[in-house]
Simulated assay, not measured.
Amino acid sequence: SSARITISRCVGGALAKLVLRKMGISITAYTSQIGDIALDRDYSKYDLSSVESNIVRCPDAEVATKMEHLISEVKAEGDTIGGIITCVVKGCPVGVGEPEFGKLHAVLGAAMLGINAAKGFEIGEGFNCVTSRGSQQNDIFTSDNGKIHTTSNHSGGIQGGISNGEDIYFRVAFKPVATILQEQPTVDKDGNNTTLRARGRHDPCVLPRAVPVVEAMTAMTILDYIMLNNNIVV
């Protein structure tokens, strides 16, 4: 299953992003980790407008340089490496999603895990929340001059399967590419043990290329659910 299939997703996602932009909704994904080189989990610490300023699509120039060097080292060894992409959705209106079948975070997870090489999905605090107490994790609602919002956003902008108006943020883990330029033991079509060495051009790390794919799948999912919630037919 070639990653080239994602070109159609990027086209559809680009169109969806144009529609969402008119609604005041922005979607930004970025490379937050490659191998053991990682950014802080808090996306608010970074200028997300700088994501496209380097080839690894990382909003921290210093960390981006380290990531580039690591990828170059891995490539020289004929190997591959994985990482994590973080995605942030700002401006999503309250009430998008379903409370039971079709929870918004569930369909976002399905969309992300449908991308080639994606192996993990977590929204909000994700796996980090398991060591906390409910009193620490609960996002408290408050009213500020009639505008209701939460004082924290551990849930990642979605509660009970429905958007609550806060930023939606999640992380997607991508495995190292399976095709490596080293000999590997395998089995041929007749069941005999043999070795395989790949040829041709293969990416040592898919993360930089996967960033726009994550944005595209997010855009199509969010727009789809806004249309469903508002009974919009195109």
Rank of each mutant, 00 (worst) to 15 (best):
G165N: 07
A118D: 01
F141Q: 09
I168A: 03
L104W: 00
L113R: 07
K147T: 15
I148N: 12
N164K: 02
G160E: 09
G109H: 06
R171K: 15
G146L: 07
R171P: 01
G134A: 03
E125Y: 11
A106I: 05
A110L: 08
A118S: 13
G156L: 12
V130T: 11
Q159I: 15
N153K: 04
G160I: 05
V172Y: 00
P99Y: 03
I140D: 09
G161E: 03
L104D: 00
S163D: 00
G109S: 13
F101R: 08
G102L: 12
F101G: 13
N145P: 08
V107N: 06
G124F: 01
E122P: 02
H149P: 06
G160S: 05
I115T: 02
L104S: 00
T131R: 11
G126F: 11
E100G: 13
H149R: 14
A110M: 09
S163W: 00
H105W: 06
N145G: 11
P176F: 07
G157N: 05
S155H: 14
S143Y: 05
I123H: 03
F141W: 14
V172D: 00
L113S: 06
E125W: 12
A111T: 04
R133H: 08
H154N: 14
Q136A: 14
V177Q: 11
K119T: 13
E98F: 10
N138I: 10
N138F: 09
F101L: 14
G165Q: 11
F174D: 04
P99R: 06
A118W: 01
N164S: 04
E125D: 14
R171Q: 13
F141R: 07
G114T: 11
S143I: 11
H149F: 15
S135E: 11
F121L: 09
T142A: 14
V130A: 11
G126Y: 10
N116Y: 13
T151K: 15
A106F: 02
K103Q: 14
Q159G: 00
A111K: 03
T131Y: 09
D144S: 13
T150I: 05
P176C: 09
V107S: 06
I115Q: 05
G120E: 09
S132G: 05
K103F: 04
G134Q: 04
E125P: 00
E125I: 06
V172S: 00
T131M: 12
G134P: 06
T131S: 15
S155W: 06
N145H: 12
H154P: 00
